[in-house]
């Protein structure tokens, strides 16, 4: 008995030891900085950046400035629209990949863009979309237009490039869940009277929910905090929260306000993560119930059998 206890505690100690390096890393570079940000948001701003060590709620009051509210609303709608477009594009793409014989090749193709620095890829879009850019030149060359179109430095180009940047993060989780989906369920639905669309809506979508919520989180959170894309391809009216934070840190030097915005960003993202964990947990619960019931299942079926015998006897 004692020996067993000793073994147990040794195992536990080993477990703690394995988690140690990661714990130290996260404490040093994640938890402590997060604490500092929270702390700063409740302090007075220093004149040349930094903070004065005096408690203040001024940063949170400043956030209710209408111009900031406008940016917050804009950030929300741009993020929602980009995320929805990502999901709508990723669903058929994930489906096609799951059905394809060349899955490895397609996965490879999706990962290739990550080999190039994201800044370079954004600049590539500038050279495609700008008034002297590739697309305008082609359209003028084909005599489809006379004057170059304004395709860049507006919210449309921000959404376009955001979708381009984060589409792979939507495709990958959707592909993995669709790949696990039992396609004979679609046959069954069709057989039972569903049209193709009904089969997908009523049977496929509910069964790949976890993939959809993961894809939403993976795209929405980084888009919500986007900074370089609106900076490089956005116009005056495309500023997002990420840009405000940078401005407050580097130009206006209002560190408490930058911290307060960071906290808003984190809180909204956290809500998303909890929502995702919640849908995931429901599914896991259903699964674990399944394995746990085999014994009670057996008992109930035996009871069932006896009941049936009895009712037959009474007849």
């Amino acid at each position: 008995m004692k020996r067993k206890d000793k073994a147990m505690s040794r195992e536990q100690m080993l477990g703690t030891a394995y988690a140690g390096p990661m714990g130290v890393w996260f404490t040093l570079f994640f938890t402590i900085p997060l604490g500092i940000i929270i702390l700063y948001s409740f302090l007075k701003r220093g004149l040349y950046g930094g903070v004065e060590w005096k408690f203040s709620l001024l940063a949170y009051k400043q956030m209710f400035n209408p111009s900031f509210a406008k940016v917050l609303v804009r950030t929300l709608w741009i993020s929602v629209v980009s995320t929805v477009i990502c999901i709508l594009l990723a669903l058929p793409a994930g489906y096609a990949m799951a059905k394809s014989k060349h899955q490895t090749l397609l996965l490879f193709l999706i990962i290739i863009p990550f080999w190039t620095n994201s800044l370079i890829r954004i600049y590539a879009w500038i050279s495609i979309l700008s008034s002297e850019g590739f697309l305008n030149n082609v359209l003028i060359g084909l005599h489809l237009i006379k004057e170059p179109l304004h395709m860049i430095y507006n919210n449309g180009s921000v959404i376009l490039v955001l979708v381009y940047m984060y589409l792979p993060f939507a495709i990958l989780p959707l592909f993995t869940t669709i790949d696990k989906f039992d396609f004979s369920l679609l046959d069954a639905a069709r057989d039972l009277g569903a049209t193709k669309l009904e089969a997908i809506n009523l049977v496929m979508i509910p069964n790949i929910k976890s993939g959809i919520s993961t894809a939403i989180i993976f795209t929405f959170i980084p888009i919500f905090g986007a900074y370089t894309v609106p900076l490089l391809v956005g116009g005056k009216e495309s500023t997002m929260i990420g840009n405000i934070i940078v401005d407050q840190v580097s130009k206006t030097r209002n560190w408490p306000l930058a911290s307060a915005f960071s906290i808003v960003l984190t809180v909204i993202s956290l809500i998303g993560v909890f929502w995702m964990l919640n849908t995931g947990r429901h599914e896991k619960l259903a699964q674990s119930k399944n394995s746990a019931t085999s014994q009670s299942e057996l008992e109930s079926s035996v009871a069932d059998h006896h009941m049936r015998n009895k009712s037959e006897e009474s007849k």
Binding site: S184, L185, R190, L192
Partner: peptide, 20 residues
């Protein structure tokens, strides 16, 4: 006729019950 228009129904080998 498409499967949903036929007067036949199928019992699949793997049951194909809707898990949700």
């Amino acid at each position: 006729l498409a499967p949903n228009q036929r007067q036949s129904n199928t019992v699949f080998q793997t049951y194909a019950l809707f898990p949700h």
